[in-house]
């Protein structure tokens, strides 16, 4: 069953967040942030403690929990800070720390594209729009933000609704029925999938085979029609033709030559999801058209006005031309 401590911690951080969202004094703010962050830290510490593993497995999980804590704390700042520019900057911190979580989950390509696209492109757009459409404070030099940034709308009911969703979503990581076996990270399956992905990429396969043995000239299919046979010790056997041989012989690739995350993602993108890739391009193109249409200044000129405008411009040009001549 879902442990009681999880619901207690949820209620604690919900109360802290609700207090943070309501307008109040500095000391209460401090206490509320301590309470909310303590609730989140409690959940994370309990999960880390529950593994009871040797210390070498604990270190990456500790780093993961730290990144998780930073990202959640700055997400809280995003929704509680009174100055929109600081909200956007705290969102950059959320993106960077969750990119660290992605790296720890061995999704390097997604992590760095997230930093480039989110922190580099989208957030810059947000900052520019904030500068374009920012209201100056009521009197110059006051540190108070404008009224609609300071006073939130219905914080208590929003927090209750949100944390009910959190209690349902987050409860799913705990084992509910003892009969269900816990899921495990299947290393064997991962290695097998990795070699199978490599077999889809002939050029990379030849390059990896050359790394293992420089005299390889070609990789050929094995007897069962596959390029790669995976061994139980995670190495793979290829049939290769060497420079001074006419018949294919076996070559063993060590697990260190598995394809990296970036090439696997790229391969999946073009072999399994080519139509989605094209559709993504169309979506971006349409968004660009839409942004251009929206941003164009709408000026209504009748035909006569346009003619008059053109005539005045032409007259001015003639005048200046005459002056220079």
């Amino acid at each position: 069953m879902v442990p009681i401590f999880f619901y207690v911690a949820c209620a604690m951080s919900a109360a802290g967040l609700a207090l943070l969202l309501m307008p109040q004094g500095r000391t209460l703010r401090f206490g509320a942030s301590i309470m909310g962050l303590a609730g989140i830290a409690w959940i994370l510490v309990q999960i880390v403690r529950s593994i009871g593993a040797p210390s070498d497995a604990l270190a990456p999980i500790g780093v993961l929990a730290l990144c998780a804590f930073v990202s959640v704390a700055s997400a809280v700042r995003v929704i509680t800070h009174h100055r929109p520019v600081f909200c956007a900057l705290y969102f950059v911190l959320v993106v960077v720390s969750s990119a660290a979580v992605f790296v720890l989950l061995s999704a390097e390509f997604v992590a760095f594209s997230l930093i480039i696209v989110y922190a580099g492109a989208i957030l810059i757009t947000y900052l520019f729009v904030l500068m374009l459409a920012q209201q100056s404070p009521a009197d110059i030099g006051s540190t108070d933000a404008v009224e609609y940034d300071r006073i939130q709308r219905e914080p208590a009911s929003a927090v209750i609704a949100g944390f009910v969703i959190l209690a349902v979503l987050g409860g799913s990581v705990f084992r509910v029925h003892e009969s269900n076996p816990p899921a495990t990270l299947d290393q064997d399956r991962a290695i097998r999938q990795g070699w199978r992905d490599l077999a889809l990429m002939p050029t990379l396969l030849l390059a990896q085979a050359r790394q293992a043995d420089a005299t390889v000239t070609a990789v050929v299919r094995r007897g069962n029609g596959q390029f790669v046979a995976v061994q139980s010790d995670h190495s793979a056997i290829l049939s290769v033709v060497r420079a001074n041989q006419s018949t294919p012989t076996d070559l063993t690739l060590p697990p260190a030559l598995l394809p990296d995350n970036t090439s696997r993602v790229g391969m999946a993108l073009v072999t399994r999801f080519p139509v989605s890739l094209e559709l993504a391009g169309i979506i971006l193109l349409m968004a660009m058209f839409g942004a251009v249409v929206l941003a164009r200044r709408h000026t209504m000129h009748g035909d006569d006005e346009k003619r008059a405008l053109a005539a005045s411009v032409a007259q001015r040009d003639n005048a200046s031309g005459a002056l220079t001549r």
Binding site: I47, V48, A53, A68, V173, R175, P182, A183, L185
Partner: peptide, 11 residues
């Protein structure tokens, strides 16, 4: 309590 998924995934 026991976790339904590995600890890093559950975090």
């Amino acid at each position: 309590f026991t976790l339904a998924v590995p600890a890093e995934i559950s975090i």
